[in-house]
Design a protein around this nucleic acid. Structure first.
Lengths: 208, 208
DNA sequence: GACGCCTCTTGACAGGTTGCCAACAAGCGG
DNA sequence: CCGCTTGTTGGCAACCTGTCAAGAGGCGTC
């Protein structure tokens, strides 16, 4: 019998261990809702003591936030520069680009737009809002609005409401299959065009 | 000293007590996310023993479901018979009515449209979907579509996507204050009108 | 006016979860 | 080979939830 000094556990670099726990947590949060994933589950899958999770992430909630944040950041990274044609052409191109992007990142995108866990949490809301605002900025830029427009704040808010429709349409298309890609394209193009041509121009500069 | 037999607690009719607890729960769920409202909090506000909540509603989750359900149902029950004028008049009336309703039930409505408080719960999802579908039905009826239209399923889905915008707009208006009621009115009216006049007519009968 | 009973209401208990922290030990540097 | 840094463990205390038998409010009856 070789006197193996069998270590009960292996010591890892902080970043490495942190990433390992993060990965396991992401898997579990993808499988079950937030409340049904206990830190014990995460620790078990990572083959680690439960306390270590708190050591690295502080709180179960903070760990969840980290997961959501990464999931939301990835999808909206590279918005290709849109063609500089008429408004109609640009809206169509934007919608088409969007549909392609979603097609490729289906699961990722769906997971990101339905933070399936902690809800109405200030921090989660902030993270999601940040992503929404950034994509609304891109839409406004693509539609030719000047970035120093005094109405920017409200224009952005209006585009964000359009984002609500986009998410809902994505769910109808991808999850429920009640709408075809073509129907979604028509819907989103038409509505975006109306938004840009009929609604946005009516907005008066910020009230104060 | 009058020998007052001071009762430690008052005995109420089941329906009455149930309603009282329900109301307090609705308030709290409107103030904080699901996870941050303990049954103790609800019991405290209702001036009642915690166990009584389980007696009436079984589970915290069931109580929450009841709250969400009512919040989603009440608003859409009495869609007053809309005036039978032009499409424009009817959309305006519908949007205006909706804004009034929301103003009155602000907290309740907000809590209901962001039921992520419990996280991708199948039951919650079902309830929300049910309500969304029902209100979409009402919108279609009000806009003069025949209930046996073969495209009904898809028309309904399209209106549901509009619902996504409605919810987003409500949040911008009530929660963040980035949009005024007037702006929301303009947005929702214009977009609904476009949906009804430009998008819906393009939908071809169900593919199979 | 007093009593009895129905059932509404309470309070305590068990199981489970989370955050914290002091002690332990892996494994590199001297 | 030994000591020290620090990654890691395991148990503790607080809290929350669902259950249940016991207690008491108050209506109906005599």
């Amino acid at each position: 019998m070789t006197a193996e000094s069998a270590p009960k556990w292996r010591r890892l670099e902080p970043d490495e261990r942190r990433e390992q726990i993060f990965t396991c947590a992401a898997q579990l949060f993808g499988e079950r809702p937030y409340a049904e994933v206990s830190t014990s589950d995460i620790a078990a899958r990572a083959g680690v003591a439960r306390g270590l999770i708190n050591h690295y992430f502080g709180t179960k909630r903070e760990l969840y936030l980290a997961v959501v944040k990464r999931a939301l950041t990835v999808p909206y990274v590279a918005v290709a520069q849109l063609p500089s044609g008429s408004v109609e052409e640009r809206t169509n191109a934007a919608v088409e680009w969007f549909l392609d992007m979603v097609s490729k990142q289906e699961k990722m995108w769906l997971a990101a737009i339905t933070p399936e866990g902690i809800g109405r949490d200030v921090e989660v809301e902030r993270i999601v809002d940040e992503a929404d605002r950034r994509s609304a900025d891109r839409v406004l830029q693509a539609m030719g609005f000047a970035e120093d427009d005094p109405r920017w704040e409200q224009l952005n808010a209006l585009v964000r409401t359009y984002g609500g429709m986009v998410k809902a349409a994505g769910r109808e298309w991808l999850v429920r299959g009640t709408l075809s890609r073509e129907q979604v394209r028509t819907l989103l193009s038409t509505q975006l065009l109306t938004l840009v041509k009929d609604v946005l121009p009516q907005i008066t500069p910020a009230p104060r």
